[in-house]
Amino acid sequence: MNMTLILLAAGDSLRFNGNKLLYEMNGKPMYRCIIEEIDQLPGGLFTRKLIVTQYDEIMDYMKDSGYKIIVNKDSKLGISHSIHLALKELENEDTDFLFAVCDQPYLHSSTIESLVRGFKGSKKGLACLSCEGELGNPALFSSRYRKELMELKGDKGGKRIIRAHMSDVFLLEAADPAELQDIDIRPR
Rank of each mutant, 00 (worst) to 15 (best):
S143Q: 13
A164V: 10
L7V: 12
S75L: 04
V116Y: 00
G27K: 00
T111I: 11
V169F: 09
Y106A: 15
S109N: 15
K156V: 15
S80K: 08
M1S: 10
D12S: 13
A139N: 00
L14E: 06
L172F: 03
L180R: 07
C33G: 07
G158L: 06
A86K: 04
M30D: 05
S114C: 12
D60G: 14
I185K: 13
L85A: 04
D176T: 09
A174I: 10
A86L: 02
Y106C: 12
Y61D: 03
K49T: 13
D182C: 13
T53Q: 03
R144F: 10
E132R: 10
L115D: 10
A178D: 12
M1A: 09
A86M: 02
D64A: 14
Y145R: 01
Y55M: 00
L107H: 06
D60E: 13
T53P: 01
E93P: 13
S114P: 03
N137G: 06
S82C: 02
G44H: 02
L50H: 03
D103E: 15
L140Y: 05
Q104L: 11
Y31I: 08
H84Q: 12
D168S: 05
I6P: 02
N26P: 04
K73F: 02
L180M: 14
E134F: 11
D182P: 07
E179P: 08
R144Q: 14
Q40F: 03
V52P: 03
V101A: 10
S142P: 05
Q54A: 12
G66Y: 01
E113P: 09
P138H: 05
A10I: 00
E37R: 01
L115R: 07
H84A: 11
M1I: 05
P138S: 08
L149H: 15
G158H: 07
D96T: 08
D103H: 09
V71W: 01
D155L: 08
V101P: 01
R160A: 15
M59T: 11
K120S: 11
K63A: 15
I112F: 04
K123R: 13
G136P: 00
Y55D: 01
I183E: 00
G27M: 03
S109E: 15
E24L: 05
I79A: 06
E37Q: 13
L115C: 11
P42D: 15
D96M: 06
Y31G: 10
K76Q: 15
L98K: 07
L7W: 02
T53A: 01
R15V: 09
D155I: 09
Q54V: 03
H108G: 09
G18W: 04
F170V: 04
Q104A: 13
E91T: 11
R160I: 14
G18V: 00
T95W: 03
S114D: 14
G11L: 05
I79S: 06
E148W: 07
Q104W: 01
V101E: 13
L135M: 10
L85K: 02
G133T: 10
G136H: 00
L14Y: 03
A10S: 14
N72A: 00
A9V: 00
G157M: 02
Y145H: 04
E24R: 09
E179L: 08
G43Y: 10
K159E: 04
F97L: 12
M25W: 01
Y61M: 02
L5D: 06
M1P: 09
I83F: 04
R32A: 07
R186P: 12
L129I: 09
L140S: 08
F141P: 01
M62S: 09
Y55L: 00
E93T: 14
R144Y: 11
E57F: 08
